[in-house]
Amino acid sequence: MDTAPETTAAPVTILVDADACPVKDEVYRVAQRHRAHVRVVSNSPFRVPVSERVKRVVVSDGFDAADDWIAEHAGPRTIVITADILLAERCIKAGATVLKHDGREFDAASIGGAVATRAIMADLRAGMDGVGGGPAPFSKADRSHFLQSLDRVLVKLSRA
């Protein structure tokens, strides 16, 4: 028996920037519990669960085609899952809630600093001739924090 409350508001939609997303399975589980719709957006097909609420969106392989589709469909009842800072900035401007894969939220207060840091890091990497590491490995704690954050945001939006 489905115990999620009925609401007259439009359902929340979760847009997943899918190409490098390590939490797709978690999104599906939490979305089902909250009756949210999910759009898995990528340049190539991904397997998605058979569900009337989960749809795969395959865009062209053009530069930023997936980001453009996500940004065009982002809005106040949308949660965007991405680590792409520039995409996050576009979606925040459209009124969407944006979560990174580790559960941290990009918001109007933090996005400017994130964009500036991204630019500085790009300059530093350009001067290192490929030397250096990447981001820290994705951990169980990151996955747990993501689940908690997604659940919290979905509860908040369901009450709005």
Rank of each mutant, 00 (worst) to 15 (best):
R159F: 08
V50P: 10
D2V: 14
R35P: 08
V50R: 11
A83W: 01
P45G: 07
R152D: 10
A10D: 09
V50N: 10
S51V: 04
K93R: 10
V80N: 01
T97I: 07
G112C: 11
Q148K: 14
E72T: 07
T82Q: 00
V59Y: 02
R39P: 05
I120T: 14
V58Y: 07
R143I: 02
R159H: 05
G134K: 13
E52H: 13
Q32L: 13
D102P: 01
A4V: 02
R90Y: 09
C21P: 05
D25S: 09
K24L: 06
V16Q: 11
R77Y: 01
D61N: 09
I120R: 12
T97L: 03
F138L: 03
R125T: 08
V131C: 15
A65P: 09
L154F: 00
R29Q: 14
D2A: 07
D68G: 09
D67M: 11
L99G: 01
K156R: 05
R39L: 05
A119S: 09
P137K: 04
G133K: 08
V41I: 11
V48S: 01
H34M: 06
A119P: 06
V59R: 03
V50I: 08
D151A: 03
A114G: 09
H73V: 12
V155S: 08
I70V: 13
L99F: 04
K140F: 13
S139F: 09
I111T: 08
L157Q: 02
K156V: 01
L99D: 02
V59W: 15
T82V: 04
D2L: 12
H37Y: 13
G103N: 06
L15R: 08
R104I: 13
S158N: 11
A119C: 08
Y28K: 07
V23P: 06
I85G: 03
R159Y: 04
L86W: 15
A36S: 02
A141V: 14
K24C: 03
N43T: 13
V16L: 12
D107F: 05
G133W: 00
A65M: 15
D151N: 00
R53F: 11
E72P: 02
V38N: 06
G132K: 02
A31C: 05
G130H: 04
A36G: 03
V40D: 07
I85E: 06
V12D: 00
F46W: 11
N43D: 12
D142M: 01
T3P: 11
K140S: 05
V155W: 00
R29N: 13
